[in-house]
Amino acid sequence: MHLAYPTVVAALLFSVGVYGVLARRNAILVLMSVELMLNAVNLNLVTFDMWFRDRLHGGQVLTLFTIVIAAAEVGLGLAIVLLVYRNREMVDVDRLRSLAESDDAAEAGEVGEVGEVEEAAP
């Protein structure tokens, strides 16, 4: 089998994931796009394992490890997203700007509002 087919599929899948991470606003959709990028990397790992005919199967074993790490990452990521939702009633990454560097009036207003919500939560 020609090596170009799986590597091109992996490159296209990675680009789709890049677009999703940059363009989506919902935090769960961003997590889905990260999963797409991880899958592209997995496809490359399996492909090069088959190409090198690795006797230790390093590529496939690393693929299994990446799948486990992706499962751990999505569990932890969803816990963080649920915590953000519990505190702010939304998961829109464009509006989560408490860590942004600018300190104009709108940001100050949002920070005050967020503090209010956090006080009201418990």
Binding site: V8, A11, L12, F14, S15, V18, L22, A23, R24, R25
Partner: peptide, 22 residues
Amino acid sequence: DLDSGNRWAAAAVAAATAAVLV
């Protein structure tokens, strides 16, 4: 409102990534 306002910049970056990688 699932897509952010910088969708076209994101599409440009993704197209450039795809072109370079492919």
